[in-house]
């Protein structure tokens, strides 16, 4: 049906051209560059002059021999991502199942409520959580004290675990609506007859969930888990803006913040780039899994 004129053959490239140009200049080339920077001792001087200053893999050597990486940054990044993804997906799924069982009115109410949680920008959300947990006047401490559960105000931001517990709350609160909405849409696509048939067979809600819903929504779950993993690996503002999060509390560093404070605080752009490359590689690994899941049943 399609007419094979030169225009037709060129058309895909004409359509793709503008987007490709933008991607190439602002994503691909920078990606190459961050790798090039990571092989240099790249400081203010080099940025100003543009002269390269190659030092091979020394930056990577420094990162891998830095105890900060092994004792603080990596556990914070990976541990947090694992926990956050687990909580986000579990909560999101629960909410989706709950919403599916509600009548139209309440489903709209709950749906709007989680939209509000989702819509709160990361920066404002972070400040709200900081305010809630503020040591001197935050409502959390005041409530605990009013209930007699603690005598003195506690500063929740100084301890590594409570610090990340607050980040977790923040990230899960912001992240679960996406999961819930996506899974809900998938749930509603599951043929009702299948569920009814299972109920007739006497399968309880729990078994119906694992036997029918999970297998049917395998791909939805895969997508949701992988996207959440990627997002939760690169939390930045939620950590950076917290009290002590921008470097003075060393136990709270994660890969993203570490890279940023080393580059822009210490002017060690090469070292910071090397950390960034590391983060990219970890995420690339996850992406490979994503791509393979996506490609299995659907040819591109």
């Amino acid at each position: 049906m399609q007419r094979r004129s030169p225009l037709t053959r060129l058309r895909p490239w004409l359509l793709l051209g503008p987007a490709l140009a933008v991607l190439a200049v602002l994503l691909l080339w920078p990606l190459v560059r961050v790798f090039l920077f990571s092989l240099q001792d790249y400081g203010l001087r080099e940025i100003v002059s543009g002269e390269p200053n190659w030092i091979g893999l020394a930056n990577y050597g420094e990162i891998f021999t830095d105890p900060t990486l092994w004792t603080v940054v990596l556990p914070n990044t990976v541990g947090f991502a694992v926990l956050a993804v687990a909580c986000t997906v579990a909560l999101g799924t629960g909410v989706a199942v709950l919403m599916a069982s509600l009548g139209p009115l309440w489903r709209t109410v709950v749906g709007s409520a989680i939209m509000i949680a989702w819509a709160m920008p990361a920066v404002t959300g972070t400040y709200v959580w900081i305010w809630i947990f503020d040591a001197d006047r935050g409502i959390f401490n005041e409530t605990l004290q009013a209930l007699g559960l603690q005598d003195e105000p506690v500063n929740w931001f100084t301890n590594r675990y409570t610090f990340y517990a607050i980040v977790l709350l923040n990230v899960v609160h912001h992240g679960f609506p996406f999961v819930a909405i996506t899974i809900l849409a998938g749930l509603l696509g599951v043929p009702k007859e299948m569920l009814e048939a299972a109920e007739m067979d006497g399968a309880g809600a729990w078994r119906r969930f694992w036997r029918i819903i999970v297998p049917n929504l395998k791909q939805v779950f895969a997508v949701v888990i992988i996207l959440s993993t990627i997002w939760d690996f690169k939390v930045f503002a939620q950590v950076y803006l917290m009290p002590g999060g921008s470097g003075s509390n060393r136990e709270a560093l994660n890969l993203g913040v570490w890279s940023y404070v080393e580059s822009f605080g210490q002017n060690r752009y090469g070292f910071g780039s090397a950390i960034a490359v590391l983060l990219t590689l970890v995420l690339l690994g996850i992406t490979v899994v994503y791509v393979r899941t996506m490609l299995k049943e659907d040819e591109l």
Partner: peptide
């Protein structure tokens, strides 16, 4: 001092002093 002061900057000291705390 207070637990909250652990993450205070100088500006926080000023604010709290001004509030009479």
């Amino acid at each position: 001092s207070s637990a909250g002061a652990t993450t205070w900057k100088e500006t926080d000291v000023l604010d709290n002093f001004a509030q009479g705390n």
